[in-house]
Nucleic acid binder design. Structure first.
Length: 482
RNA sequence: GGCGAAGUGGCCGAGUGGUUAGGCAGAGGUCUGCAAAACCUUCUACAGCGGUUCGAAUCCGCUCUUCGCCUCCA
């Protein structure tokens, strides 16, 4: 059984073998930190989080780099317009450094809520100016870049394969380029900026051999990827909208300098739509994660994202997330029962579930199927537990272990079972147990006396307080409800 | 205009030549004092029109529709 990954370069599923096993080098385009993260960020980073988790589970040693863009990303078209960070700083009446640090912190807060594990290295663009200047110098030396009036551009004509990732020929680029680039220093309309001379009043600027200025956006990923992961990396991920021009530019810059393939597997995740239309910054429909977390459990959002495939578009609607909430609760319930219920005698074969789960994940990280396997397991386990014979102790342990591995370690949609029971310290947990036992005793007594008004009142009031009671064959059980 | 993705049952969402996706919602049942949870049974599909094939949701062609990129976006 081996892992297959859909490679955007070539548009086929290919068997994944890293260049230097067991190490896997992986770079994912990080956020530009000028605003709070939104659902699109969540989809992207949750998807790649699962990729990393599965690779690690498969025995690879993953070196995961995800950058923070804090300079050079302009608001407007082809190398014109204001720097996004600077603009936000102007709007918030502060300086760019504060903006990028504030939103970087915000980004990680949201990712932590989504159980997204931190990358091994999170380099920022502004911290790697010398590396970027160095790369530009090499490009000029090899004739792939040229300087005009303090600006440096990459010459697209010097790299015949330009556009190979997106499938755009130079002609296509030419056509679209002409529309937006009439007056420019560029030799060719598709040429893109490597270094820009700072205009009057520009805040983020550095000394370079060409001018006091700042780097072009595409450059940082090449510079940092090659610095931390080497000239050829195994996996480069990002959003689909970055295929062109961003990733094609990265390829051109990097391969022009090294003469080697820049990336072996390109992975692109699809977009989030809201009620069928694109979530855009210009449209006012984009869903801020901090707002979303006020209404929904972040883990439910993660679960919702993983219920569709990373290469499929994800349509956000409250109805859909509510459906996910109920679904996830079902898995949690099974996890809980496995931890609480008394063992019986029935043996239960976990292997088919484990196998199908692995097959799904190995098939280009097919999380919807992987989750479907968990649901089928849940159903079978519940059915077995409902029988009078019950599940054997070994089987229960195996099932719980599998849920823990697949649901918590790999997909990150379940939590440690022991933690779901008692939040807070142990003493409080024990006290809560004791208090509820008192109430349950009173309720049992009421029921014995057929005082159902009282027993129902206890049940309802406890539910209001976040404690759900269930009358099972084995007696009364209770659990915390989020 | 160019490049690309896609249209699946009430909703979300997998699947790619013959065999159950899964979840949510709905219906009936078991259990229960009543619920809840769980279990059992069950309804509603593959945009349209042609073609290839013994057989197509799945391959091919056309039509319609939606979405993304080409200009900042994960």
């Amino acid at each position: 059984m081996s892992l297959f990954i859909y490679n955007s370069l070539g548009r086929t599923k290919e068997k994944f073998v890293p260049l230097h096993p067991p190490i896997v080098t992986m770079y994912v385009c990080g956020p530009t930190v000028y605003g709070h993260a939104h659902l699109g960020h969540a989809k992207s980073y949750v998807s790649f989080d699962v990729v990393v988790r599965w690779l690690r589970h498969s025995g690879y040693q993953v070196k995961y780099v995800q950058n923070i863009t804090d300079v050079g990303h302009l608001t407007d078209d082809a190398d014109e317009g204001e720097d996004k960070i600077s603009k936000q700083a102007r709007l918030e009446k502060t300086d760019p450094m504060e903006i990028s640090q504030f939103y970087t912190k915000s980004f990680y807060e949201d990712m932590d809520c989504l159980m997204v594990q931190r990358p091994n290295i999170a380099p920022n663009a502004a911290g790697h100016i010398p590396e970027q200047i160095d790369l530009i110098e090499q490009l000029i030396k090899t004739g792939h870049a040229y300087e005009v009036n303090g600006n440096v551009y990459f010459s697209v004509e010097s790299f015949p394969e330009y556009g190979k990732l997106s499938g755009r020929t130079n002609q296509d680029a030419l056509q679209s380029g002409i529309r937006v680039e009439i007056r420019s220093d560029k030799r060719h309309p598709s040429d893109f900026a490597l270094w820009k001379k700072a205009e009057e009043g520009h805040l983020m600027k550095w000394r370079s051999p060409w001018s006091i200025g700042y780097p072009g956006w595409h450059l940082e990923c090449s510079a940092m990827s090659m610095k931390y992961l080497g000239e050829t990396i195994d996996i480069h991920g990002g959003g689909m909208e970055n295929r062109f021009p961003h990733h094609d530019c990265e390829i051109a810059q990097s391969e022009s300098v090294t003469g080697k393939p820049y990336v072996r597997f390109w992975m692109h995740n699809n977009m989030v739509t809201v009620n069928g239309t694109k979530m855009g910054k210009s449209l006012k429909n984009f869903v801020n994660l901090k707002d979303l977390f006020k209404i929904f459990d972040p883990i439910v959002i993660r679960f919702f994202i993983l219920q569709s495939h990373y290469r499929s578009p994800l349509d956000f609607s409250e109805v859909a997330i509510k459906a996910s909430t109920t679904g996830l609760e079902k898995l949690r319930e099974t996890q809980r029962r496995l931890g609480e219920q008394r063992p019986g005698t029935l043996a239960f074969d976990m292997r088919p579930f484990e196998q199908r789960f692995s097959e799904a994940m190995d098939d280009d990280f097919n999380t919807p199927i992987a989750i479907a396997v968990l649901f089928e397991l849940s159903k079978s386990v519940n059915a077995a537990l409902d029988r009078t014979e019950g599940m054997s102790e070994t089987s229960m342990q195996e099932a719980a272990a599998f849920l823990d591995k697949a649901g918590r370690e790999i997909l990150g949609i379940l939590q440690d079972n022991s933690q779901t029971d008692n939040s807070g310290n142990e003493l409080n947990g024990k006290r809560l147990d004791a208090v509820i036992d008192v109430l349950l005793d009173l309720r049992a007594e009421a029921r014995k006396n057929k005082d159902f008004a009282l027993s129902d009142k206890i049940r309802d009031r406890l539910l209001d307080a976040g404690i759900e009671i269930k009358d099972t064959k084995e007696g009364v059980s209770w659990s915390k409800k989020s």
